[in-house]
Amino acid sequence: MANIKMRAKLVGDITEIKLIINHPMETGRRKDDIGELIPAHFIQLVTAKLNDKTVLEMQWGTGISKNPYLTFYLNSAKLNDKVSINWVDNLGKTGDGEILVVAG
């Protein structure tokens, strides 16, 4: 899906995964131009998998910046392994993305 941009690069034994998710991450405390509160809308759970094994399980609050950016690292990935991301937000909306590990 287009809502996640990902990259996974293997350098030596370590794979660096960078990702950006398009998401407003509204806290529920911000007001719009006419002074009305903008309802909270933020990602709560994110799971990262290497092939089919979970490697990183995340719980996020409203304190993660808009369009969340994350880098994480694996010592268990090989070239062409699949790294995938799934998220669900407080409104029950979901998103996912996947990428193959390439040489850095």
């Binding site: 290497l50 094994k53 979970t54 990183l56 995340m58 994480f72």
Partner: peptide, 9 residues
Amino acid sequence: GHFTFANGA
């Protein structure tokens, strides 16, 4: 946020 690592992360 809370981050839990497994399987080589």
